[in-house]
Design a protein around this nucleic acid. Structure first.
Length: 170
DNA sequence: ATTAATCTCCTAA
DNA sequence: TTAGGAGATTAAT
């Protein structure tokens, strides 16, 4: 990044069969992805006003999201700009990215894998703070004994995503 | 420095 | 099945 990087953010809507998501980019990558809000969000600037780099990342994101929503492995991901998170949160998010499609893990298990076996409650908090849901698969984390657990994006989404990936609950 | 709020988990009733 | 507390982390007061 050069010296006169004026943090500029570019929102881009992504229409899917499940509704319109909203991606937000900075000059370093994808910053956040929001679930459909229901309201009209025609806040995407014209392509001509966006840097070519970001337009390219966006194409990758669109494909990745479509694949993820279909329960398939995305061919590629855009750069995930997660520097807004604390070290702890980033450690959790990195761990989430290692869970493969169809697999699930418990909050307790994530806690141990990042070397904080007692930070179980905090792992839940970090999952809820995940700025890029779906692509960073926070929905693959279940409560103990494979109970569904919670989801700030709405439990219907969590169930839907897990179902499409062929994960088993109880 | 304190408090309140989390996508938890285990125990006991 | 429900009630309550321990516990780590974070944002807000």
């Amino acid at each position: 990044m050069n010296s006169h990087t004026r943090n500029r953010y570019f929102p881009k809507a992504i229409a899917t069969p499940d509704g319109t998501f909203l991606a937000l980019y900075s000059d370093t990558g994808l910053v956040s992805l929001s679930f459909p809000t229901g309201r009209s969000e025609g806040k995407s600037p014209a392509d001509a006003e966006m840097p070519a780099q970001i337009r390219q990342w966006h194409r990758v994101t669109v494909t990745a999201l479509e694949c993820a929503l279909a329960g398939r492995v995305p061919p590629a991901l855009p750069p995930l700009e997660v520097s807004s998170g604390t070290d702890f949160q980033q450690a959790v998010w990195r761990e989430l990215c290692r869970i493969k499609i169809g697999e699930t893990r418990s909050y307790d298990e994530i806690a141990r894998r990042i070397g904080r076996p007692n930070a179980v409650r905090a792992v839940g908090g970090a999952c809820g703070a995940n700025p890029i849901p779906v692509l960073i698969p926070c929905h693959r984390v279940l409560a103990a004994h494979r109970k569904i657990g919670g989801f700030s994006g709405g439990m219907d989404w969590k169930r839907k995503l897990l179902e499409r990936e062929g994960a088993t609950l109880r």
